[in-house]
């Protein structure tokens, strides 16, 4: 590499400046809006400083949304990783190389779909009367009706299943590829010691893959923050507020119900602060 070249500066600086502008202007402006009392219906506004934030903490629907969001993160991340590791290990153990390639291709399809498409596909499938996914239930119970999306107890899980359908299958492919990169010797050695397949994976391969698996989980935690499309299409936050995550509630406060843009922005700012702090800390730990 040549010592002195203008390339790093001319290549990096413009891009970084643009990225900084594109990201900082909206985030800083989000904070400014959160300190005001803007509404969609009127043009004038004034600064109310922290009163939006005070209101939020006495807003039970907001607290519910926080809880739903936390549940969503835990359920989707845990289920995705379980499905991914389970199927990844299975492919590694029982599928021939040719079959592996076919499964890999099939398992990537769901994640490529637009979230809106995935949501619609499963919204039809979960339809209590005509859905293909509820058909086995109708068949077995002689035509009884099961409506997973309109029951508060099951709605969140029904929507989460779509997220896991997209990401769990995709991550299974990655887990398989990670397993394939491992050296053969420790696995063969364990086999010679009469270790069972599950023992080999539980005590040898998966611990060896701890770092990439943790990174994978980190990626899923970030992607799980983008639940809005699925929930918007499938339940609109309902039944009641059972699937109303923070972004769904912010959207409905800001745009559907009351047009309280500043209130919605205050919520978004809290989300932003929470996620940036959490993920920065997690990232530093993952890297360390």
């Amino acid at each position: 590499m040549p010592r002195r070249s203008s390339l790093p500066v001319t290549f990096v600086v413009p891009t970084l400046v643009i990225l900084l502008i594109l990201s900082m202007v909206p985030t800083l402006y989000a904070i400014v809006i959160a300190l005001q009392n803007r509404e969609l219906s009127s043009a004038d506004y004034s600064y109310v400083w922290f009163s939006n934030f005070y209101d939020l903490f006495s807003d039970r629907r907001f607290l519910n949304a926080v809880w739903v969001s936390v549940k969503w993160e835990i359920v989707t991340v845990a289920a995705t990783m379980t499905v991914a590791i389970g199927l990844g290990v299975l492919m590694f153990e029982v599928a021939s190389p040719r079959l592996r390639n076919i499964y890999c291709l099939l398992f990537i399809i769901p994640v490529l779909l637009p979230r809106v498409s995935a949501a619609f596909v499963w919204k039809f499938a979960y339809h209590p009367l005509y859905g293909i996914a509820t058909y086995p239930y109708r068949l077995l119970t002689g035509g009884m009706i099961f409506d997973p999306l309109s029951k508060p107890a099951t709605a969140l899980f029904a929507v989460a299943s779509v997220d896991v359908w997209q990401w769990g299958l995709f991550f299974a492919v990655i887990v398989l590829k990670l397993l394939e990169t491992l050296p053969r010797q420790p696995i063969e050695a364990a086999r010679l010691d009469h270790a069972r397949s599950w023992q080999i994976h539980a005590y040898v391969t998966l611990p060896m893959l701890k770092a990439p698996l943790v990174s994978l989980m980190f990626v899923k935690m970030i992607e799980s923050l983008r639940s809005f499309d699925l929930i918007y299409v499938m339940t609109r936050g309902g039944p009641g507020v059972a699937t109303e995550t923070l972004d769904m509630y912010a959207f409905s406060q800001g745009f559907i119900e009351s047009g309280k843009v500043s209130y919605a922005s205050a919520m978004a700012v809290l989300m932003m602060v929470a996620t940036v702090i959490t993920f920065t800390m997690l990232w530093k730990r993952v890297q360390a």
């Binding site: 985030t27 959207f251 843009v261 919605a264 919520m267 989300m271 940036v276």
Partner: peptide, 22 residues
Amino acid sequence: QFFVLSLRFLPPVAVAIPLMVI
């Protein structure tokens, strides 16, 4: 690299609301 990745942490609502106003 971290800055570029951290852009992904930003909740889309937090970007979309101010941008709409802007």
